[in-house]
Lab assay of single mutants.
Amino acid sequence: MDLSALRVEEVQNVINAMQKILECPICLELIKEPVSTKCDHIFCKFCMLKLLNQKKGPSQCPLCKNDITKRSLQESTRFSQLVEELLKIICAFQLDTGLEYANSYNFAKKENNSPEHLKDEVSIIQSMGYRNRAKRLLQSEPENPSLQETSLSVQLSNLGTVRTLRTKQRIQPQKTSVYIELGSDSSEDTVNKATYCSVGDQELLQITPQGTRDEISLDSAKKAACEFSETDVTNTEHHQPSNNDLNTTEKRAAERHPEKYQGSSVSNLHVEPCGTNTHASSLQHENSSLLLTKDRMNVEKAEFCNKSKQPGLARSQHNRWAGSKETCNDRRTPSTEKKVDLNADPLCERKEWNKQKLPCSENPRDTEDVPWITLNSSIQKVNEWFSRSDELLGSDDSHDGESESNAKVADVLDVLNEVDEYSGSSEKIDLLASDPHEALICKSERVHSKSVESNIEDKIFGKTYRKKASLPNLSHVTENLIIGAFVTEPQIIQERPLTNKLKRKRRPTSGL
């Protein structure tokens, strides 16, 4: 017993010596996670971090007073192994002897410093981030199933929210409404489509400006004509009531908005009720001829604005009016007729031209339509002016008669200019590109209106002035400009410049 007691005391002394060697000089306990400095002193990692955080910048070693920084600290694995072995020896000594260790306080702390507990403390002390800490805590505590279930439920809930957000973003663009038309193969669909197009076009005519009305009406008319041609002859009974509906809707729209509806009346003529396609083609032919005449008058307007600064050229074209007008009339009417003589009366030419125009518009179905009313009214106005011209010709002399006839021709041009508003800008460009020769010939008609105004002003003063002067240069210039014009009389060319000069002198006297 005595020997055993001596041996136990010796073992205890050895353990105490080893414990003092492996103590931390700051906390005076076994080193936890030993860290060595540049001066080869060993301290606990937790104690050194606490010391360095007390001051900004480098701190001093507690043993040798040298500078220490966080970067200079290094882990010493050898001392950590020695500490672990010492703890194992102490545990074995207690089991063999059955005696508690003399320094129970220190031993209890040593026992608490088992490797499992050290790992837990290291995970908390090290600044490795929240995710690494959570992982280490889960690994160190596998015995708690409640914690695992809560963490898994949190992760699953987070994943569910992310997935639901993604699915919502994908589903939202798919919620856009999609309209699908289910059509049938019955023959009544074509008639319904035609009526739908006509009503939609009328609404567009009321909303859209004048520049786009003609294009819309032309497209709708083409669509309706194609649909009529596709149907068989057996379905004509269905077409006639639908066309009557079209007429009623167009008349109502014309009564409500007459000014807006006139812009599309000329282009919509071939959508009118037709028994066969031949009647629609004839109407299209007549409309094309009318559009040609209207576009020519538009060309004359532009030329008149350009040549208004040259009064000499405008005056020299006075007698070329009849010849150029004959050529335009021959090209406007498709019928083959002989040219009228140069010395014939211009009023007779106008009456013949009106007689040619009237039969074209005397179809029984055309008179029933609303768009032809505008053309009939313009023709009636022309006839009224010609009836007035006959009365004026009986009273005035030959020279005054010529000037009045020219004035009436200008009035006719004004009437025809009203129809110019109905034609589109695209048709003007096509006419100029296809028929430049006709445009040059028809330019002379509009330029002549300037000389007509001068004659009217001469009649106000009650006299006409003449001068025997020749202007050969002007006649040559005008002959080169206009290709299809005829030779003019030299006496009238000489008379016109004198009248304008005298007018300039006598205007201030009349004002006084």
Rank of each mutant, 00 (worst) to 15 (best):
Y130R: 04
K251E: 14
G98N: 00
P34I: 03
E10C: 05
T161F: 15
S177E: 08
V162H: 06
N66V: 13
N132K: 03
S72K: 12
L52A: 06
E75W: 15
D40A: 12
R7P: 09
H41V: 00
F107E: 06
K70S: 02
P173T: 04
K55S: 01
P142D: 13
A5D: 03
N106Q: 03
L30F: 04
S76I: 01
R133K: 07
L6W: 09
S104D: 13
I171F: 05
P25E: 03
K65L: 08
N66T: 05
S151K: 07
E75T: 05
A134S: 05
N132Q: 15
M128E: 02
L6V: 11
C39I: 00
N16Q: 09
C47V: 01
L137V: 08
D67E: 11
I31S: 15
R170E: 09
R136V: 03
S151A: 03
N53F: 14
Y130N: 03
V14E: 04
L22W: 02
N106F: 06
D2W: 10
S157L: 06
E121A: 07
I90L: 01
D185Q: 14
D185C: 11
N144Y: 05
E100R: 08
R78C: 13
V11T: 08
Q169D: 02
R78F: 02
H41Y: 00
Y179S: 11
N16P: 00
N106Y: 11
K168H: 14
L182M: 08
E149D: 00
L165C: 11
P25K: 11
M18I: 04
M18R: 00
T97N: 01
P173K: 05
L73P: 14
Y105N: 06
P25S: 05
A92W: 01
Q155L: 03
T176S: 05
S114Y: 13
Q172G: 05
D185I: 04
L6R: 09
R131T: 12
I42E: 01
Q81A: 14
P25Y: 07
K88N: 13
Q74A: 13
R78I: 13
Y105R: 10
L156T: 13
V191P: 14
A134N: 11
V154T: 10
D40W: 10
S59W: 06
T150V: 04
S186N: 12
Y179C: 10
L73E: 02
E29F: 02
P58D: 12
S217N: 14
Q148L: 08
I125W: 12
L152C: 14
S184I: 05
L156R: 06
N112T: 07
E149A: 08
S177G: 08
N103D: 15
S123L: 08
V14L: 03
K110A: 06
A102I: 12
T190S: 06
E111L: 07
E84S: 03
V14N: 06
S157V: 08
E188A: 06
K65D: 13
E100L: 09
K110D: 08
A102G: 08
Y179A: 11
I89M: 14
K70C: 02
A134F: 08
T176A: 06
K20V: 11
Q155E: 07
V11A: 04
Q174R: 10
F93K: 08
D67H: 03
L73G: 03
Q94V: 06
L147T: 06
N132F: 01
L6T: 11
V83R: 09
Q19V: 14
S114T: 11
S186M: 13
P115R: 12
I31Q: 02
Y105L: 12
R7V: 13
T164H: 04
E116L: 09
V8P: 03
S140R: 07
T37M: 00
Q172C: 06
N16H: 14
S140P: 07
K135V: 11
T167L: 05
E143H: 06
V178M: 08
I90K: 15
N53R: 05
Y101P: 15
L138C: 13
G160F: 08
S140T: 05
Q169S: 12
V191Q: 06
E149L: 05
I125A: 06
T150H: 06
L3A: 09
I42G: 02
T190A: 12
Y101R: 04
L147P: 12
L137K: 00
P25M: 01
Y130A: 09
S104K: 12
T167G: 15
S146E: 05
N106C: 04
A102Q: 09
K168E: 09
E143V: 06
Q54R: 11
G183S: 06
F79E: 02
